[in-house]
Simulated assay, not measured.
Amino acid sequence: MFTTRAFTRLAVRPAQASAMAPIRSALFYTTEAAPATSALLLRIKADVKDAMRSRDKERLAVVKGVLSDLTYLEKSPQAPAQVTDSVIQVLIQKSIKKREESVHDFKTAGREDQAEKESKEIEMLKVYLPTMMTPEEIEAEVRRVVQEQGATGPKDMGKVMKELSSLDPARAPKKDVSDTVKKVLGSL
């Protein structure tokens, strides 16, 4: 585990000293664990720099928005213990879903220019996502787990879902997995 050394200089003033007395400094030494940084987060930060250098305002706004969403997530009470690529990818998927809803709303309102802008932002965000599992791949994985667990019907859904929790939510959204499990267990 890597550690960083942080030196903090604090100004300490004795209670009896006058206002003109020189400030004494104390040097404190602390050792903190270096924050684990995911490869995707490093890539996003590099893309911010690239967008700034190329003066690409649209891309810069989108990528900075991802970093902002990540900061809000880290400060929230339900923050994950560690920010992994998967956590960031799920966050990006949520952002894409919001934009897709906006595209639909803009199109129904007759705002094609805004809908096109949102569509471009979606394409910029999709660069950070892994390839999604197809419904057939999800179903094959669910059937494999159902067979391993010896599940016989819908009452075994919890057991099957627990086993499937190891699937990457960025590649196979939990809702899709859950729907597939219901379908497969309902047909038994």
Rank of each mutant, 00 (worst) to 15 (best):
K94G: 15
K57W: 06
E139K: 14
S166E: 11
M133P: 03
R53H: 11
D176Y: 09
K97G: 00
F106K: 08
M161A: 02
L60W: 04
T4G: 04
L125C: 12
Q149V: 15
E139F: 05
T3F: 15
A17Y: 12
T30V: 05
L164K: 01
Q82V: 15
S166M: 10
P14D: 13
S102Q: 13
K175C: 04
Y128N: 01
E121S: 15
A115N: 11
A6E: 11
K64G: 05
L70N: 05
K117I: 12
T31C: 04
P154G: 15
R144W: 03
A15E: 12
S187R: 08
Q82F: 03
L42G: 15
V146W: 01
Y128T: 01
Y128F: 13
F28Y: 13
A21I: 05
M161S: 02
A140I: 09
Q114V: 06
D105V: 12
D176I: 12
T84M: 03
D113L: 11
E112L: 13
P169C: 07
P77R: 08
R43S: 05
V142Q: 09
L40G: 00
D105S: 13
H104K: 15
T30A: 05
M20E: 10
S38N: 11
V145T: 07
G110I: 12
A34H: 04
P22D: 12
T108D: 08
E121M: 05
Q16K: 10
E58C: 02
T84V: 11
G65L: 06
I44Q: 01
R5I: 15
M132N: 04
S38H: 12
S68W: 08
R99Y: 02
S166G: 08
L91P: 01
L40I: 03
Q16L: 14
T31Q: 08
V83K: 07
A21S: 10
E121I: 01
T31A: 05
L164D: 00
K45G: 10
I44F: 05
Y128Q: 02
P130L: 09
T3I: 14
R59T: 11
P173I: 10
A140K: 14
I44N: 03
H104N: 14
V142T: 10
V66N: 00
A51D: 02
I96H: 00
Q147N: 13
E58K: 05
K117L: 15
R171F: 07
I88W: 01
I138R: 06
